[in-house]
Design a protein around this nucleic acid. Structure first.
Lengths: 209, 209
DNA sequence: GCAAAAATCCCCCTGTTTACGGTAGAGGGT
DNA sequence: ACCCTCTACCGTAAACAGGGGGATTTTTGC
C-alpha cells in the first residue's frame, strides 16, 4: 500500500531558508511540500486548495504579521497544524502564536533533524517546542515566590480578579466583610495602587496571582 | 577530567518501578541515584542533604500528595529540577504540578529512553513533556472558537475580567458608557448569568476569553 | 442585495459597592 | 519583644452595577 504523502506548506520570506526547507522536506518520501509562500496574503489566497496538513510559518513577514496570519489560516483550515519557525522567541511572540492557534514553536536555529522531528511530532498529536520555549511555557504557570502579599491577601486578590465583590469574598472565606475591606486596603498599599483594576494588573503581571 | 555525576532522587511508592528507574539511571555513568523514597514525608526529611539536581516524582503517593510535595521540595531546594512521572495525566494534575514548581511532566507509559532524554533535557534548561502533555499545555492558551459572544462582547468581557469598571471600559474602547452597558447586558443573556463574577467564570471556563 | 447580527447610543431607576480615613485585639513566627 | 498577619469595627461620598425600556447605524453572511 502506498501512503499519500503528508502535505506541507511553507510561509517564509527568506528565499534561501524557504528553499532549504523545501529541499529538506521533499527529500523525505512521506512528506511533500505542496506550496511555498513569501507572505501571509499570498498564502491566504491559495492555501485552501493546497489543504496542507502542516504549515511551517515564519513570524517576521512583509505585510500581514505571522500572528495575524496564523489566525486566518486556522479559520480557513482548522485542522492544519501550524508550526512557527522564528528567530524571535520572546514571550510575546510565543504566547500570541499559541493564542492564534499555532501547534508548535521552534527557534530558527533549530537543526534540520529537529525540524523533521517536529513535523513528526505534530502529526502524532504532539506540540513541538524547542527547549527554551517549553521552559518558558512551563514557567508561565508558576507564581512569583517573592510576592509582597501575605497568603490571605493573595487569596483575596485572586477572588477579586474573579470579579467577586467584597461581600462575596467575605462569604467564601467565612470572614466578615470588614476584614476583606482591610485586606484590600493593605493590598493596595503594598502594590502601590488605588483601584481594583490596577491591583489585578500588577498582581497578574508580577505573577503574585 | 572526571565530571561529578548528576545527582538524582526518586520519589515513587511502587517498589518495582522505583528500583527499575534506579537501575536504569545508575547504568548511565553521568547520572547517580543518590536516594529513593516512597513518600513525600520521607523525602522531605532527607532530601536537603541529598541535594539532587533532578527529582523524579510520582503523584499518587501514600500520605502527602505529590503536588504538595513538589511545592515543599522546591522550597527547600529551589534549584532542583522536578520531573513528574505519573499515570494520571489529567489537566488538573498537570497544571497543578507546574504551578507547584515541576519542570517537566511525563506519562508513566514513557519509554526508558524517553525518560533518560527527559533528564538530559531538563538539565539543559528545557522542559520534558510527553506528547499529549505538551499538546494539552499549548491548547490551554487557545480560545474556544465557537464562542456565542461577538468580537466586541469578548473584548468587553476581557476588560471586565481585568477588574475594570463600565466607565473605564468605555473610555478604553472609545465608546459611550451606555454602549458598554448594552454589551454587558447581552453578554449576561448569552451566558445565562446575572453577575459579573459568573460571567467571568463562564467566560474563563469555556475559554471565551 | 437583503436580512440578520453586531455595534452603537439613549433614558429611567435603585440598591450596592468601592475606596478612603482611622482604630485595635489576638495569634504566629523570629 | 517585635513585626506581620488576620481579624473586626465605624463612617461617608462618590461611583457603580444591574434591570427595564427603546432606537439607530454599520457590518457581515448567504
Amino acid at each position: 500500500m502506498t501512503t499519500i504523502p503528508t502535505k506541507i506548506c511553507i510561509v517564509e520570506d527568506n528565499f534561501v531558508i524557504k528553499e532549504g526547507y523545501k529541499i529538506l522536506i521533499d527529500s523525505i518520501s512521506k512528506y511533500h511540500v505542496v506550496n511555498t509562500y513569501t507572505s501571509c496574503e499570498e498564502a491566504l489566497d491559495n492555501i485552501e486548495s493546497d489543504a496542507p496538513d502542516v504549515v511551517l510559518m515564519d513570524l517576521e513577514l512583509p505585510g500581514m504579521s505571522g500572528i495575524e496570519g496564523i489566525g486566518r489560516i486556522k479559520k480557513k483550515l482548522p485542522k492544519a497544524n501550524i508550526i512557527v519557525v522564528s528567530l524571535h522567541t520572546d514571550k510575546e511572540s510565543v504566547f500570541q502564536s499559541f493564542n492564534a492557534g499555532a501547534a508548535g514553536f521552534m527557534a530558527k536555529a533549530v537543526s534540520y533533524s529537529d525540524l523533521l522531528d517536529g513535523i513528526d511530532e505534530v502529526l502524532q498529536g504532539g506540540a513541538p517546542l524547542s527547549k527554551e520555549i517549553s521552559r518558558m511555557v512551563i514557567e508561565s504557570f508558576q507564581r512569583n515566590t517573592d510576592s509582597p502579599l501575605s497568603r490571605r491577601e493573595t487569596e483575596v486578590l485572586e477572588k477579586l480578579a474573579e470579579g467577586k465583590s467584597y461581600s462575596q469574598i467575605a462569604d467564601e472565606l467565612f470572614v466578615h466583610r470588614e476584614t476583606i475591606k482591610t485586606h484590600i486596603k493593605n493590598i493596595y498599599i503594598k502594590l502601590g495602587v488605588k483601584t481594583k483594576a490596577n491591583a489585578i494588573e500588577i498582581g497578574r503581571h508580577n505573577k503574585y496571582i
